[in-house]
Design a binder for these strands. Structure first.
Length: 481
DNA sequence: TACATACAC
DNA sequence: CATGGTGTATGTA
């Protein structure tokens, strides 16, 4: 996706928030995670409605660059706010935001006191840790990240020409998974409810998901990937990492030309476009693949100076693993770019866990993994469905039955078994509660899942979840292995 | 182990 | 007439 506020390198600073396509990932999820998860932040001022619009998921939906042929950003925000403000969903977002603000405020208290201290004794220790990270830098591989452009939407347009050049999205009235570029001009984005999108763009055409088709196309592009790296890592149906180092040894071509060729083959064989990033590791390749979207590629040379010049002005939000919340925390400390992470490394060190510190520092140095493998061991299997409020426990058990049957069937396909069953209740107010139970022996049958799940539900209906709220709307079973 | 949060897609 | 589903990592108790 094209950026609007560019610095000398063409990188986006500050603004951003285009958020990529949002895809259901039904298979081959290789989420190699990364970032700091729950950060022990405490703190902030009870921010109000306006802040919520700015900070929450709802605000995030509005903050992209709408406004070419459609409406401007303020208008988009306003429409989303009007459509959301009285909903249970919005209320829950507001609550979550308040909690976050309190934590942020406490964090800031700590930060302010740190700023008054003399931290010079810690300096050398921190610099040492930076040196340790620097020694991990490996510039010997050429890693490619390939990302299909508006994947689901492009497939639907390809197969139905009447959809072309019109604002269109894939999904349904309650949730969109992808929108095409015309729709994005109206502020219509993935992860936006269809009914809100329609308010932003009344002409919007919403096409239902067709996963079988997307999977088939995914298989096609993966076959192409395997020609260049048999050990490529698929991250989702439309995205993958390749290590083309070995391939380059067999041929007298530049990395850029090879990637052009991959993208050309994708286009010839699927009539779809892809974008790509080429760099020394997965972190950098991923960031690069976003820079010349759609239908473009970006090469970052395997050279420390180039990498540092590239990463220094980059908004922290561009780092995979730094999301809305972490960005907010960093911004609160006046850290907006990767360069600022390095400049404030001592504060980062004192404010965060060591694993978070290590993550931030490596990201800011442009250091990341360059291991690209196909094999992957799954750690959990889950199934979840949202349904309208239920009033009787028996209704809940019935849902449990259905989901347990499905889950067991899926487990059988992969010959999986596990020892932990977790159930997530989504209450009518959108609050999520999870309760789990581990057992001694491995289980995999629908009956076992059902029976354990039923106990978990039974206990919590009577004790933790008040009868009223157990008009919950969702159940998830998670099986850990 | 149990639960919550953050993140990606 | 209304805001999804699957998976991973991490912090805290």
């Amino acid at each position: 996706m094209e950026s609007d506020i560019l610095d000398s390198h063409g990188f986006l600073i500050g603004e951003e928030l285009e958020g990529d396509d949002f895809h259901y990932v039904e298979e081959d999820q290789k989420n190699e995670n990364i970032g700091p998860s729950s950060i022990p932040y405490p703190s902030s001022t009870g921010s109000k409605n306006n802040d919520l619009i700015r900070n929450s998921r709802i605000g995030e939906l509005a903050s992209n660059k709408a406004g070419l042929q459609g409406i401007d950003k303020e208008k988009v925000k306003q429409i989303i706010y009007e459509a959301s403000k009285n909903s249970a969903f919005y209320l829950n977002e507001e609550k979550k935001d308040e909690a976050l603000s309190i934590k942020l405020k406490q964090m800031m208290k700590k930060y302010e006191s740190l700023k008054k201290q003399n931290l010079s004794t810690i300096n050398s220790k921190v610099d040492n840790l930076v040196q340790v990270a620097e020694r991990e830098r490996d510039l010997s591989h050429i890693i490619v990240h390939i990302d299909m452009d508006a994947f689901y939407a492009s497939i639907e347009e390809r197969d139905n020409p009447s959809l072309r050049n019109k604002p269109m999205a894939v999904g349904d009235n309650s949730m969109l998974t992808t929108s095409n570029y015309e729709a994005r001009n109206y502020g219509v984005r993935s992860a936006m409810p269809g009914f809100i999108a329609k308010k932003l763009c009344p002409e919007l055409i919403i096409v239902p998901c067709n996963f079988d088709k997307y999977r088939a196309v995914s298989k096609q592009i993966r076959e192409i990937f395997s020609r260049y790296d048999p050990d490529y890592t698929p991250m989702s149906l439309d995205e993958a990492y390749l290590d083309i180092t070995k391939y380059l040894d067999t041929i007298d071509e530049s990395p850029d030309n090879v990637v052009e060729q991959i993208r050309r083959e994708i286009h010839e064989e699927t009539k779809l476009t892809a974008s790509a990033g080429i760099a020394a590791n997965k972190l950098l390749a991923k960031i690069c693949s976003d820079l010349n979207k759609p239908n473009g590629q970006y090469r970052l040379q395997n050279n420390v100076d180039d990498i540092m010049n590239f990463i220094r002005p980059l908004s922290v939000r561009k780092i995979p693993g730094i999301g809305r919340v972490t960005e907010r925390i960093l911004n609160e400390m006046d850290i907006k770019t990767c360069g600022a992470i390095l400049d404030n490394r001592v504060y980062i060190h004192q404010m965060f866990s060591s694993s978070s510190f290590n993550f931030f520092i490596r990201a800011a140095l442009g250091i990341g993994s360059n291991i690209v493998k196909t094999d992957h061991k799954r750690k959990s299997k889950s199934i979840s469905r949202t349904f309208s409020s239920l009033s009787k426990p028996d209704d809940l058990y019935e849902k449990l039955r259905e989901l347990a049957d499905h889950l067991a069937a899926d487990l059988l396909k992969e010959r999986l078994q596990g020892k932990t069953i977790a159930i997530t209740f989504k209450l009518v107010n959108f609050k999520m509660i999870t309760r789990e139970r581990s057992v001694k022996k491995y289980i995999h049958t629908a009956d076992d899942i059902y029976n354990i799940g039923k106990q978990v539900i039974f206990i919590n209906i009577n004790r933790i979840i008040p009868l009223q709220t157990f008009e919950s709307t969702l159940i998830t079973f998670i099986n850990r292995f």
